[in-house]
Design a protein around this nucleic acid. Structure first.
Lengths: 210, 210
DNA sequence: GTCTATATTTCGATAGAC
DNA sequence: GTCTATCGAAATATAGAC
């Protein structure tokens, strides 16, 4: 007689606990920074004993690395919004929409990324030099093609990309400041809609697309 | 017979040492965050024994508070570039120029500010609710007046301000990423000029000013 | 006002019972 | 796989001689 079959139960437990820890870590790292975050704080927020964190993630740095890596993957998915577009208005407009949606859904992740870059990218420097660099080169070429074809105003593609990143991520990274200036209330659905529309309106018109 | 007169010598020593400590603290807080910064690091960078820091600034938090407050004062000075302008093109153009210049000259200060806001502004929340809020309300009214007079395209003034902050501060806060994408080299004079011109070109055209 | 030595606290990480 | 107790390192802050 065989024991009752419970295949992969261990993996499920691991996957679930890792997800719980990562969600808590994302928030704590965003709100306290890497140095200010403590394993105790993350454990409390995850509802687990501190020792369990070390069981799933050997060190605080390894946990942080996973959080940053996961966020980077999300950024890259937004990139696809720009590809396969029929032209600059559709491509850049869709990219702004996608990045604004990410700022709204993953404000903690955006803050962790910003903090990591501000501190000199000690953990994800290799991503900057490889994946991000390659993506940027490709997108600069795409924008340059649109310009050469006379489909948009000639602008420096690199600085246009910086503007797209800056304006969209600002709504995540500076959400606290925006909330304070919004009477202490987070942006509601209509205000997020207005924000995205404002960014699209000014940027698209700024590069000759109405 | 009186002792030799040495008036205010004490104050001079204090002022000089405080300035040295603040300069070092600004850099360390920017590069390591509040939690990651240590009094030892700041002391080493300032070339002083750690105990001396505590002589001039009782706690790490008090030192940090001074750094953030000083930076806020610099932000406010750029505000004047927008006032007294003959119109929107001159006012907003000058504001962008001023903020880009600050991003270049005080990259550490900008990062400390960004980090402070990202962490929920635990130290400067009152500044956000008073000085910054008042300034913003005034500037929104100014932009609205320009719009009503038909001198620029109708846009949401609040979101235009966010765009100005985001785009200009991006060059300070994400300077490491920009440097990496620039072949590992910081922007030189010409590249800073091109950056400011790009921001001005797209934003001004985006609000109907060429 | 300066600086060495140290007190006190806190944190990351681990041991080991369950 | 879970969790209590604890070690050892590092940090803030202070005491006290100079």
């Amino acid at each position: 007689m065989q024991g009752s079959p419970r295949p992969l139960r261990r993996n499920e437990i691991r996957a679930q606990n890792e997800a719980t820890i990562l969600r808590a870590a994302e928030k704590v790292f965003a709100e306290a920074g890497f140095g200010g975050a403590t394993m105790q704080l993350i454990a409390d927020m995850a509802g687990l004993p501190k020792a369990n964190l070390h069981y799933y993630f050997a060190t605080k740095e390894e946990l942080y690395r996973r959080v940053v890596r996961d966020i980077f993957e999300i950024w890259l998915q937004a990139a696809e919004a720009m590809d396969g577009a029929s032209g600059p208005a559709e491509g850049i407009g869709a990219y702004i929409e996608a990045k604004m949606e990410i700022s709204r859904r993953y404000p903690y992740g955006s803050k962790v990324w910003a903090s990591e870059v501000m501190h000199g990218a000690p953990v994800i420097q290799d991503y900057l030099e490889t994946t991000l660099r390659d993506w940027t080169v490709g997108r600069v070429a795409l924008i340059r093609r649109w310009i050469d074809e006379g489909r948009m105003t000639p602008v420096d593609p690199q600085h246009l990309l910086y503007m797209l990143w800056a304006t969209t991520q600002h709504y995540a990274d500076f959400s606290h400041q925006i909330e304070t200036l919004n009477g202490g209330q987070p942006l509601n659905d209509a205000e997020w809609r207005a924000a995205a529309d404002s960014v699209k309106q000014i940027v698209l018109r700024g590069i000759g697309l109405d």
